[in-house]
Nucleic acid binder design. Structure first.
Lengths: 216, 216
DNA sequence: TGAAGTGCCGGCCTCTTGA
DNA sequence: TCAAGAGGCCGGCACTTCA
């Protein structure tokens, strides 16, 4: 799905308001990197119809990695593009606390993002959309694992699927249209009504916000 | 999309009620073929978690084509599976008028179907889900082309995208939950509210229903 | 520990084919 | 004419890798 559809979603939407959490938190950091995922993100640009209103025209060279984190300090661990086919050592970016906080808060609201919501959140966090996408993917997986171990039983996974099925989340073609596709993360417990059981409430690791407030 | 997600949608949903249009139209046809798309549909069965509550266990052999149409008459044009690797001549199934009618009516309601809606409609029409999926795909394309020529301008396509974006449509993860994922096609004009323009009304070829009522 | 890589699946789109 | 094939893109999931 959904993609191709991004065609119907990406270009003409521009649902990203500038008053996002960023402006609220007043944490305007650098505007440099945090773009192009080089290999995969580029083909994104090559879609049929134009898509993605991303600024930078993707300057073919340099910064092959998306190191969209770590406050103002440069902190590049990529091979500096010495040779053409750089070794491309697998880097592990560390998201800032502000980014994690916002991602977690958003995750509490909904576990799946529409493309426009993703774009909005990404630009708000100075991350690539792919990074946000992957973060949510990994986060979902983490949640699933946590539930499996917490509930110590095969039903855990079902609860997860159950909750994820009839509730939340978007579609590739249309977003929740709340705030025009933008989310304002608010750390509240989320209720996941299940189809055949009493509403299942998950407080999403209530302690995860602790220690995330003191700057990056 | 979705897929993978069909995992969360397929198995535990069973949202297909038996009072579908079929029971209304009292057109219980044969229950035989109209399944397995052989090549592609089969891997569907091989998904990670079980999915699809389809009856027939997919008997490896015979009926490689999905000829889910044409009233009671057999009408098979496939190579009868004489040799193992039959020539597999490209067949062109002709849907019955009843099937077309129902598909068109459903299409008027929404131009994209969730997996459960698709499953429901498919079983209701004795067609494979793939056939329904492809039909909707081709129908969407047809609509788009019609709009392009009708409006004689480059804006037509945009209107289509515009309409398809903020309106309808499902998601891979959750369906409209109307009637439990089942649709009751009702030939009414559909209103496609656009984001930045007055609601765009499309009467979906008002004459297309003519001549579709007289039996198969 | 967790961002990212890999492999597989399904859907959608566009264009094309051939009964 | 139109169901279906083919090629290409995207997102999701499971599982793995390694700074």
């Amino acid at each position: 799905m959904p993609e191709n559809m991004s065609k119907e979603d990406g270009p003409s939407r521009s649902a990203c308001f500038t008053f996002t959490i960023d402006s609220i938190l007043n944490l305007k950091q650098r505007q440099d990197g945090a773009r192009l995922d080089a290999l995969k993100e580029q083909r994104d640009t090559g879609s049929r119809t134009e898509r993605r209103e991303s600024a930078a025209p993707l300057t073919a060279a340099s910064s092959p990695e998306a190191q969209g984190a770590h406050g103002p300090e440069p902190q590049q661990q990529q091979p500096a593009a010495d040779t053409k086919a750089a070794v491309k050592k697998k880097t592990r970016t560390i998201f800032s606390k502000r980014q994690i906080f916002q991602l977690e808060a958003t995750f509490d609201m909904k576990r799946y993002l529409s493309s426009s919501e993703r774009a909005c959140l990404a630009s708000s966090l100075q991350l690539t959309e792919t990074q946000v996408k992957i973060w949510f993917q990994n986060r979902r997986n983490k949640l699933k694992r946590q539930l499996s171990t917490d509930m110590e039983g095969p039903l855990a996974a079902e609860h997860f699927a159950e909750a994820g099925k009839n509730t939340q989340l978007p579609s590739f073609y249309k977003d929740s249209s709340l705030l025009g596709g933008c989310l304002l993360p608010m750390p509240f417990p989320v209720v996941y009504p299940t189809a055949n059981a009493a509403p299942y409430i998950y407080f999403s690791n209530s302690a995860k916000y602790f220690g995330l407030f003191d700057g990056d």
